[in-house]
Design a protein around this nucleic acid. Structure first.
Lengths: 134, 134
DNA sequence: TTATATAGGACAAAAAAAGTCTTATTTAAG
DNA sequence: CTTAAATAAGACTTTTTTTGTCCTATATAA
């Protein structure tokens, strides 16, 4: 329905929390989940995956937890959203070439392209630093 | 997943077809559905609803069908999308005031607001005439 | 060695979207 | 007046996506 999944919303909350944390110390899932009001097991899944993208780093065991994988000004909202819910594509036919029969003559195609690019521009220009600051 | 529903996609196809039709004559569901490759019963539902928005007008009975409710340059893509899938709102907390506890301090809120406004600007600036022309 | 964390996979439940079917009602034409 | 063709409307089913849970394995610090 043309809106963000809860998964991405949760992901953003968690990442902003990490960026906001004084000194950007390591924080446990338990702490993060409680603070940002997200089911812990779900956030675990999200952050697990984020580890693979280098968005977070983790330590296991007592006193372990998560920490940002890069400095906050180098992580954009776009990255977080796309890591959480896959590449943004407004319509099926924008996923890749040749997926849509109608592509050749579809006059709507370029409009979705424009919307998509604009959205990526905006999300790509906002960093965790921006979101944490203030 | 941050993309258009098929319903809206189908709706757009149908509306563009009506706008493209020479002389903008009345067309039956059967004809439209076949031409734009959409299940007829589904398009029926969509156009039924569109009638209430004044986006189309219909005639029953032999020789009946659908016709645009207004001239193509007065129907925007935004209207079609919102008629098909409800008002665009990028995130739950943008649906209305007070629906989100986090609203007061949420730094992401204004970003979604910007994305949403931009998207509406673009979609609102494209009319069926644009999409049909050429 | 034990308690505490994350890693990862499988699975379950819920919600949303897509599609189908059936019964009215309207209209034109015979 | 009857019939065929079309939309109106609602109920229902299926499929897909999203959300959430649970269990076992592995790593780490005390």
């Amino acid at each position: 329905m043309l809106h963000l999944t809860r998964r991405a919303d949760y992901a953003i909350r968690g990442m902003v929390f990490l960026a906001t944390k004084p000194g950007q110390e390591m924080a446990s899932l338990k702490e993060i989940a409680a603070q940002v009001d997200v089911p812990q097991a779900l956030l675990a899944k999200i952050f697990q995956q984020f580890g693979k993208f280098g968005l977070v780093r983790s330590c296991r065991g007592t006193g372990g937890g998560f920490i940002l994988g890069r400095s906050p000004e180098k992580i954009t909202l776009l990255e977080i959203v796309e890591a959480a819910e896959g590449p943004i594509s407004m319509n099926r036919c924008l996923v890749g070439k040749g997926l849509c029969d109608r592509e050749k003559f579809c006059t709507v195609h370029p409009v979705w392209m424009e919307v998509q690019d604009k959205m990526k521009d905006i999300l790509g220009s906002v960093t965790l630093k921006d979101l944490a600051g203030g």
